[in-house]
Computed example of a mutant assay.
Amino acid sequence: MIQVVVADDEPMVRAGIRAILATDGGIEVVAEAAHGHQAVELVRAHRPHVALLDIRMPGLDGLAAADEIAAVAPATKVIMLTTFGQDDYIARALGGGAAGFLLKAADPRELIAAVHAVAAGAAFLSPAIAHRVIRDYRTMGASATQARQRAATLTERERDVLALLGAGRSNAEIAHTLHIVEGTVKAHVSSILDKLGARNRVEAAILAHEPGLS
């Protein structure tokens, strides 16, 4: 059972998220928070597999809460909930350890898929977010052209793995799809991050949406 803490300052949004997640028998919402400080305390108390955080909340916002959660409960994976027009917040969160980014207006099935994906150790990006962020996002100051030049050093197998990373697949799922062992996938992911100059799986997943990279 995947345990989840939901944090959003709007009660109706929290109720909607809880209702959606309740349709999946493998997910349980163990607590709800109305602001970032409360989210951190609830994560500390429940140690859930996943924390769903509104990127903008009064007091301690989702970005700061994610930083604190990483310190007090590093095993808890964070999914940031956002709306259109908050690309600057998303860019700031990319290096903060969040495992997923999801639009509040996304299809309910996307929310469920995101929870399962990050709980399994994958990165999950709403396709709409990925396309908006890649338009402006540059890894470690590199241009899109430079990123593509780095991608040219990837092997064919690494390109296969990168494409699956971009699709939100976990190491186990990538291994099953490509008929290789999980340890080999981990080695490929490490090599991909090094060659692309990406800090984490989320950055690599975003770069997978850059034309010509995977």
Rank of each mutant, 00 (worst) to 15 (best):
V202D: 00
A144T: 11
S214H: 12
A33S: 10
K186A: 14
A71Y: 01
Y89R: 07
A119T: 07
E156K: 09
G183V: 03
R148I: 13
E173M: 10
A167Q: 07
I112L: 11
A19L: 12
M80N: 06
A205G: 15
G25C: 08
R47I: 03
G166I: 01
R201K: 14
T76K: 01
V72D: 00
A167N: 06
P127E: 15
H35Y: 13
A122C: 08
L94D: 05
R199C: 09
L162C: 09
L165F: 10
A172D: 13
G168T: 07
A22D: 12
G96E: 05
D136A: 12
A31E: 01
L102Q: 04
I20E: 00
A106R: 04
G100E: 01
T145K: 10
G62P: 09
A70E: 01
D9P: 15
P74N: 01
H209K: 13
A39E: 00
I112Y: 05
D61E: 11
I180K: 04
I112D: 01
S143Q: 05
F101L: 13
R18L: 12
A151V: 10
R18I: 12
P108A: 15
H49F: 09
L165T: 03
S170K: 00
V78F: 11
L63R: 03
R47C: 03
P211C: 04
A130F: 06
A19R: 10
E156Y: 06
L207T: 05
G96L: 12
I180T: 11
Q149R: 14
Q146M: 14
D107E: 14
S190H: 12
Y89F: 15
A105N: 08
A31Q: 03
V78A: 05
D61A: 10
R92A: 14
G97F: 03
H35E: 14
L125M: 06
L196N: 02
Q3W: 08
A75H: 05
S214F: 07
L42S: 00
D61L: 10
A175E: 03
E32W: 11
